[in-house]
Design a protein around this nucleic acid. Structure first.
Lengths: 120, 120
DNA sequence: CCTTCATTTCAACATTTGTTCAATTGTTTA
DNA sequence: TAAACAATTGAACAAATGTTGAAATGAAGG
């Protein structure tokens, strides 16, 4: 009897050894999921694409996107909370830019995956 | 008058040249956003972490996560639709595994970003 | 053929999320 | 000090999402 049902909470499992190795040993992936969740919105990916080109203020981003300043500001706050963008104030205008190199890497890696799929 | 308000839809902009360069020139980023959206859920990142270790069947994954088979199956369908995982049937059991190398790259790149933040 | 069992699908629900408009903040300039 | 203006914040709403339990597939074995 190498496999025992019902020894794990309320769910059954077929390969007890495999399960035992990982059960309770999962690292905290909540932050990683949060990062991807922030990236997982088309408006925000567009904003990142724009900021990858050059630093820009909120109202210009809104104009490019054809969206409202308020909406863009909300999205920028999320992006900032994930340290994907940073901002600096110059008088009344706030300029946003990409925060660090990882953003571009994630972006290009994601694009490669998507483009890879389109070729199939 | 190098800056004209209201010349772009209903929003104003400060730097007309910057805006003109990108307005209407944004590539289609919907697929990229969808990819990140699929990655942006803790249950799914956990599943990917598990499958990065080894191939596994649905009920084992559910046992490790302490979740229901139904729930895991739903998430696996999303992951499969994004070509992040693939599956093979062996009798009654369906085994899932990571689909291609991009997944791992995205994963490690994302983790680096998150871990980089924790050091600050 | 019927039963068993792993998985998938369906329907329903509560929660989260994106967007909008109005109100507010904070900075510059008249 | 007051007005103008870029940006942020808050409240409200519709739409999308994650989870659950029940019902339906589909493959293996008696």
């Amino acid at each position: 009897m190498e496999k025992t049902a019902k020894d794990v909470c309320e769910t059954y499992c077929i390969h007890a050894e495999k399960v035992a190795k990982l059960q309770g040993n999962l690292p905290d992936l909540s932050q990683l999921a949060k990062l991807f969740k922030v990236l997982g919105d088309e408006t925000r990916t567009k904003i990142l694409y724009i900021l990858a080109k050059e630093e820009m203020c909120v109202c210009d981003i809104a104009a490019i996107l054809g969206s409202t300043v308020s909406n863009v500001s909300h999205h920028l706050r999320l992006l900032r909370s994930a340290s994907l963008v940073r901002c600096r104030r110059e008088g009344k205008v706030v300029y946003y830019a990409l925060d660090d190199r990882h953003v571009m890497n994630l972006f290009t890696e994601g694009l490669e995956h998507v483009q890879h799929l389109n070729k199939i």
